[in-house]
Simulated scan of single mutants.
Amino acid sequence: MTDDHSKSIHDDIAYMRGLADEGRHAPLLSGPVMVAAGVIFGLASLGQWAIVTEVLVVDPMAQLWLWLAAGGAFAVALTLLIRRQQAKPGFYSPGNKAVGAAWTAVGFGIFAMWVAFMAVGFSSGDWTLMRAMPIVVFAAYGSAWMVAGAMSDAGWMKGVALLAYGGAVLLGVFADSTWGYLVFAGLMVFVALLPGLALMRQEPSDVV
């Protein structure tokens, strides 16, 4: 075996070890996205509470435009944040790819359920089913956090997942009350905003 061939093998082994270490130790980079979700959708829920309780006297259809605006704002924020995160080490690690896929699936699932519930409301005139939407959101968040906890082996993320599942049950209790909108906003602080800030503290610096 020639020296060049031996060096090539050693380089390949070192490269594979580097990939394995990156996947094992790379921090999750979904923190800014979670912060954005917590702020945007938490404020939207507070806005809906203000509308339904007539703290803000506006056309009831403003609720629809409020959530459409929130969804649009989050889509813009998500696009910008992903572009920024691509410059960070570990963005393409197996853990980040798996967790990113989980949150992407959650986002599309929530959006599909919202559109379906809206379709039921417009077609039947019965908007009762929309009361279940917050429950769907927190059950989905719990599942995504459970994946994140499993991929990172972080117990606190599994704790956030359990909190989200519990929040889904709690929102069921308040499904027929205007207090549910305040409960939703409060829960977003604990299952999105604060965990997102915790993840951001673990992130590496941008590559210059």
Rank of each mutant, 00 (worst) to 15 (best):
A87G: 09
K88L: 15
P89E: 08
G90V: 08
G90K: 04
Y92E: 11
S93G: 02
P94G: 03
P94I: 04
G95F: 02
N96I: 14
N96W: 02
V99D: 04
V99A: 01
V99I: 13
A102C: 11
W103T: 05
A105W: 08
V106G: 09
G109A: 05
F111R: 05
F111S: 10
F111I: 12
A112W: 02
V115S: 03
A116D: 04
F117M: 09
F117K: 05
F117C: 05
M118K: 04
M118W: 00
V120L: 13
V120P: 03
G121L: 10
F122H: 06
F122P: 01
S123P: 00
S124F: 02
S124D: 02
G125P: 13
D126A: 08
D126C: 13
D126G: 11
T128V: 08
L129A: 12
L129G: 01
M130D: 14
M130T: 15
M130L: 15
A132V: 10
M133H: 09
P134A: 12
V136W: 11
V136E: 05
V137I: 13
V137G: 01
G142S: 07
A144Q: 05
A144H: 01
W145F: 14
V147F: 00
V147G: 11
A148Y: 00
G149Y: 09
A150D: 10
M151L: 07
M151V: 03
M151N: 00
D153T: 10
M157R: 01
M157W: 06
K158F: 09
K158T: 14
V160Q: 12
V160F: 05
V160R: 10
A161N: 01
A161F: 01
L162Y: 01
L163S: 03
A164C: 10
A164L: 05
G166Y: 07
G167F: 03
G167S: 14
A168E: 04
L170I: 15
L170K: 00
L171R: 02
V173R: 07
V173D: 06
F174R: 10
D176T: 12
D176I: 08
D176G: 06
T178S: 12
T178M: 03
W179Q: 04
L182R: 05
L182W: 03
V183E: 00
V183F: 03
F184K: 07
F184Q: 13
G186R: 15
G186D: 08
G186E: 11
L187C: 04
M188E: 14
M188T: 01
V189H: 10
V189M: 14
F190S: 12
V191F: 05
V191E: 06
L193I: 11
P195N: 08
G196Q: 01
L197A: 11
A198Q: 13
A198M: 15
L199G: 10
M200Y: 08
M200I: 01
M200K: 12
Q202I: 07
E203F: 00
E203W: 11
P204L: 01
S205I: 12
S205D: 15
D206Q: 14
D206W: 13
